[in-house]
Design a protein around this nucleic acid. Structure first.
Lengths: 218, 218
DNA sequence: TTTCTGGAAATAATCGATTATTTGACTCAG
DNA sequence: CTGAGTCAAATAATCGATTATTTCCAGAAA
């Protein structure tokens, strides 16, 4: 009776999908590496069918490349693709932020302040994985009320792509601090409903993050 | 020996994925309908594993909705989502067309002229499925050299979404003709490298298509 | 009548075994 | 040596059967 506390009850395929996604974002597997299905089976102690279903989803999502009869590979990390992802993030998140500032209500303002506070409180001794979660949620909260489900979907997808680069890059303290202070400025501009400047700042923020991430390319 | 004439040799999962994708775009299944796996198996005469893999891909791509333990459903057709898709197409294809006009070379001009010619030649008695192919290829050709793989990916995805609405809508001859003539104008503006006007026209073109598609919503 | 409850039928998810394809080492002719 | 051809091992893809979950309906209780 206490078994299905988890809402909905996730399938094995969904669980392994989420685990694999996180592991891919965290750079557990080398760029370009071929993922051996047999090996993955043993590593995650999961059956063949749910594993293959998860891999198929990840490939459709763009975190893996599927070659017929030759299994699945981790995507490469290239300067060209990082530039593409960065520019797309600039455009789409800039657009979304402007819309969010136009449509966001008081509830949004509260959520945004809360997300920023939690992120700012997380200091040196916070586990990286936890910080990453707070960071993701902050950026989600920022654009959340833009009014377009597809825009949010694309932004999340690009965030995942971007994180593959960012998370394996060495942590540059100097830039790290600058990026952190930009989070605060973004909140201020958002609450002031200054769409123009907010858009300019988030574009700068993304470009700066991209500089940090660049060294992870081959 | 003459077996594998097909390039690369597609897997069963890839084949059924493509077939199902087309059938979904063509409205073979009702909006919101629950897809019975057992029934699909019989319909397409395919094994369970490749079928499930294809369904997982389609769900990740956004053409199906997956509910844990409750299988797969066709997405609904709603005015709100059509509006969202339309606005996203306007923004992204507008952006891509400007970039394509800036970067496209002579080869692009040729391809574009060819695609437009083939589309224009297709008349009343051309099979619908063939016309749809030419139409897709025309719009692809238009934005192809924009320089961003992710932008092209999102545009294709939105095209598929949009087609679910457009293809099940009744064929309005009046608007149909107007849309056709816009294809020619788009080519003219592209070849003249008139980015501003071309962008304006493609946005108008998308809005007009959306008007045609609106009556397919519940 | 309406609302539970139990359980059978339907169906989604998973497993174990089998088949098909690729990979890589080895052979041998040139 | 070199390169084409061959075969065995590795592994990806698929199948058939089993397990787990949901759905639906009959019957009991309120």
């Amino acid at each position: 009776m206490t078994e299905t506390l988890k809402q909905g009850s996730a399938t094995a395929a969904s669980r392994i999908y989420e685990t694999l996604r996180q592991d891919l974002l965290n750079g557990r597997y080398r760029a370009g590496e071929r993922l051996s299905i047999t090996l993955l089976r043993e590593t995650y102690e999961v059956g063949l069918s749910p594993l293959r279903e998860a891999l198929n989803r990840l490939a459709a999502y763009g975190l893996l490349r599927q070659e017929n009869q030759r299994g699945f590979r981790v995507l490469e990390l290239t300067r060209e693709e990082l530039a593409d992802i960065t520019e797309m993030r600039r455009q789409l998140e800039g657009m979304a932020l402007e819309l969010a500032i136009r449509h966001g209500d008081e509830e949004w303002e509260s959520q945004l302040l809360a997300a920023n506070h939690r992120l700012a409180r997380a200091g040196e001794h916070t586990p990286v994985v936890e910080w990453e979660g707070l960071h993701s949620r902050f950026h989600s909260a920022l654009v959340e009320p833009c009014g377009s489900a597809w825009l949010l979907r694309f932004i999340s997808q690009l965030h995942d792509q971007f994180d593959r680069y960012r998370r394996v890059a060495p942590r540059a303290q100097e830039l790290r601090h600058q990026l952190d202070s930009q989070h605060q400025e973004l909140v201020d501009l958002a609450l002031a409903r200054n769409a123009r400047q907010a858009r300019a700042l988030i574009e700068e923020h993304i470009t700066l993050s991209s500089e940090v991430a660049k060294c992870s390319c081959r």
